[in-house]
Amino acid sequence: MLAFALKRLALALLVALTVSIISFSLLRLSGDLAQALAGPSATAADVEAVRKAYGLDQPLWVQYLAWARQALHGDLGTSFFFKEPVAAMIAARLPVTMTLGVSALLFALLVALPLGILAALKPNSWVDRLALTLSVVGQALPSFWFALMLMILFGLKLRWLPISGTASWKSFVMPAIALGYYGMPTFMRLTRAGMMEVLASDYIRTARAKGLRAPAILLKHALRNAIVPVVAVAAVQLGFFLGGSIVIESVFALHGVGYLGWESISRADFPVVQAIVLVLALFYIVLTLLADLLNAFLDPRIRVG
């Protein structure tokens, strides 16, 4: 278990390093930083002064190391547009994105798990067909369009839910559905396939031969084994939700990290974009690492090697 964990950790660190180099390059590729920092009205001499002051005349790898050292200390640079520390801007918006991501995940799991289990218990029944239809439809729905349709229905026609803002939990219902619906088919197919495989396994037959009742077999013997891959994928999917929330946040004007990223791209505020790419990638890396470790922990074959 320890060797496994260390190996995973090493890979995660290596990926994090690479991602940081990529997001660093993103900022450097966006144009002449000194010019951007000095402002449009600066003279050539001013720009050169800024270049010296910020160390932009140094070789790129020196600049990267300096940037990385700052980043490790929580300093992700300064926004061109707001002249504020980027780290603080992201921190202020992170709770909205996290709330959205987690509630989207919960929504997806709450729909997908029961449907997937029922579909596996009765293949080719109407539940199975419904589950299949929902998942086929879910994978084809453009999320922003689905979000707009939800807005027209629940926000405008029925007036049940607010169509923007973050005033109460109600504001998160539609965004969570719109974001979570996209991930639901994955969970459902995984649950169904896992459940079918487990239900056909020898140890389920052993459990039945012991005379165990259907609920005990289902909850104790089948679900436990079928759910392991779902748990791992759920963590990864949360990473995707956080990274993909940009579309939904912009539709519902939720001022989360994704929305900030979108605005910053429009404003060519690349220090912010760079930092958001880095933060979201780090979230994903940490979540996949956790998923791997959780997976190993849930499977005694890996845990008790």
């Binding site: 890979l11 290596l14 990926v15 994090a16 690479t18 991602v19 990529i22 993103l26 956080l242 990274g243 993909g244 940009i246 579309v247 994704g258 990223g261 979108w262 791209i265 429009s266 060519a268 690349f270 974009v273 958001i276 790419v277 979201l280 990638a281 994903y284 890396i285 996949t288």
Partner: peptide
């Protein structure tokens, strides 16, 4: 390793930034 790194990049944001 390359695949893992690619998966870690938030697709929509990176695509938006590059297109911008």
């Amino acid at each position: 390793f390359v695949v893992t790194t690619r998966l870690a990049m938030p697709v929509v944001l990176v695509a938006l930034a590059v297109v911008a």
